[in-house]
Each structure stands twice: as C-alpha cells, then as structure tokens.
Amino acid sequence: MAENKAIEFSSDTLAVAKKIIARYPEGKHKSALIPILHLAQTEFDGWLSVEAMDYVASVLNIKPIEVYEVVTFYSMFNTKPVGKCLLEVCQTSSCWLRGSDEIINHIKKKLNIEVGETTADGMFTLKTVECLGSCGTAPMLQCGGDFHENLTTEKLDSLLEKMKIKNERSTYLKSLNLSS
C-alpha cells in the first residue's frame, strides 16, 4: 500500500467514471456503482478501504451505506488489503474432479500460506473461489484479469516464478478503454 496516497481518482480515471455514469439514464447514476468500484479497486491498490468506499459514494452522490452494502455482497471486492497477486483458485466440481485440491495444496506448501493468507513479502494472497466458468480447462486459477488454465504443479511453479519476477500488482481491469 502506498503511503499517504490521497483517496481520489486521477483525472483520467475520473473521466472514465463520468463516461460510465453517462451509460445510464438520467437519475439512474447508481447503476454505475459496481463498474466504478472496479475502477476504485484498480486505482487504490487492489482493495476498498472505508475511505475509498466513501469516496465512491461522493462521486456518485449516494449514501456510504449503499456502497458498503454492495461491496460486501460481491465476492470480487476486497475489503482488506491483498497481496500484489491474488491467486483465486477455483474449487467447484469440474475443477475438483480434475485436481484443484492438488493445486491449492501445492500453493499452500510452496508459499507457506493458508487459504486467505498473504505471503510475508506481500506478493501473493491465496483465495479459493467458486466456479469461474473455466470448467473445460480445469483446474484453473484467476489472477487479476488473467485465467491460468489446465494447471499442473509444474505449470504453477513457473507461473509463480514469472509473477515474482514481474513484481507487479495484477488487476481485473487491464485498460480503461470503453466503447463510445
């Protein structure tokens, strides 16, 4: 987490937020809440602090509780800081049938963390998730906007290595480009 970073969108992001709001009829700006929360999570280090949520409330001119209610409902929003790479391993039927347990255990052992924990260097957080719609390429994990599919422990080793070398925060949103 960057120190003393002001909780405020950059002018570019704010412009995108305004563009998103314009997608909904007048007076229905609350519709933009989830897309704008994605912008906020991308901009504010991968999680949504109370300050970040209150800021989003102010951007949309809605009450903070309306933001808290939504953020805590959806599983992609993090209300606590997470590692740079949030490893979201699918564990539902099709993935389980093809070895997701092995993938989860391998990550636990290799990174020495339990599900829900972050490595000491702040690089990785392990999370188990429910079906990500990648059943034909199971087992799989999602990290930011990337699906890593047909995983084996070998593939996993090289993937984690690459992530370490890259040392960048992975985000769901990769670009702010929106259609007109």
């Binding site: 994605h38 906007g145 990769k174 670009s175 259609s179």
Partner: peptide
C-alpha cells in the same frame, strides 16, 4: 465480473 477480459473484448466489438 470475473469475465472482465471478455467484457473488454465486447467493448472493442461494440466500438
């Protein structure tokens, strides 16, 4: 939301 990368493919197609 998990299909974010697909959403971005759709955004381009809509464009």
């Amino acid at each position: 939301g998990e299909y974010m990368y697909v959403a971005q493919i759709l955004e381009r197609a809509i464009d």
